[in-house]
């Protein structure tokens, strides 16, 4: 059904201050993009901090980065990329009116998102065991700097690395948790059959948010795990 026919009818999803569904959709889209713009700056402060210290303490950070588990990190990257695929399929399913495909992909996204957090949890646990959590119990003694086997990494500088590691990945994980919340809501709505080829803006906007969180991780992975890996 073309959009114009819907405008004339009482469209339950159309809010009173919009003239037509297209205007409402465009407003939601712009609002989401602008919000993602603020998110870029939100993480941007951390990227700036990262840049300053990585530049200043490259060797120590290389040593600290090498203690991270690159297999788990890469696996998590793959998990998020797969979840981005299920999200884009969910959007496509909503736009083409395939309700079961939509629900299936939303659920798959939820599973993948939870898997990401689980793997992240394993990594965090390992940091606690190794005393790599900044604070009074932090230990990073006798770790050699990559490429300079005669030098030991400065534990203080490594502590800053781990502080930033926890803030950056923690903030990212927080965004994942919010995303999972959004997707649970979307799944419920899809279950109730709220989304049609004409009205699926929430799926689309939730998808934009999820992809954005994915992009952040796409940067975090090389920045944190791959600083100075080569043997």
């Amino acid at each position: 059904m073309p959009d114009s026919q819907l405008t004339a009818a009482h469209n339950p999803a159309l809010l009173h201050h919009f003239a037509e569904p297209q205007q409402q959709r465009d407003a939601a889209s712009l609002g989401t993009w602008v919000f993602l713009g603020t998110e870029i700056m939100f993480f941007g402060g951390l990227f700036c901090t990262y840049l300053v210290y990585r530049r200043g303490y490259f060797g120590d950070w290389g040593a600290a980065s090498k203690t991270l588990d690159v297999t788990l990190g890469a696996t998590n990257t793959a998990v998020l990329i797969c979840s981005s695929l299920t999200v884009v399929l969910a959007v496509w399913a909503a736009q083409t009116g395939r309700r079961r495909l939509l629900i299936g992909n939303l659920l798959a996204t939820l599973v993948l998102g939870t898997a990401f957090l689980g793997i992240k949890g394993i990594e965090y646990k390992e940091k606690f065991e190794k005393h790599h959590v900044p604070g009074a119990s932090f230990q990073f003694n006798n770790v050699r700097i990559p490429g300079h086997p005669d030098q030991y990494a400065n534990p203080s500088h490594a502590e800053i690395f781990f502080a930033l590691y926890f803030v950056m990945t923690g903030l990212h994980a927080l965004h994942m948790i919010v995303g999972i919340g959004i997707f649970i809501w979307l799944t419920v709505m899809a279950w109730k059959g709220r989304f049609t080829p004409e009205y699926n803006t929430p799926v689309e906007m939730g998808g934009l948010y999820w992809h954005f969180v994915d992009i952040i991780w796409i940067y975090l992975f090389p920045l944190l795990y791959l600083i100075d890996r080569h043997p």
Partner: peptide
């Protein structure tokens, strides 16, 4: 574009 930076 400014407020998020002071927030973090």
């Amino acid at each position: 574009l400014g407020t998020p930076v002071i927030a973090i």
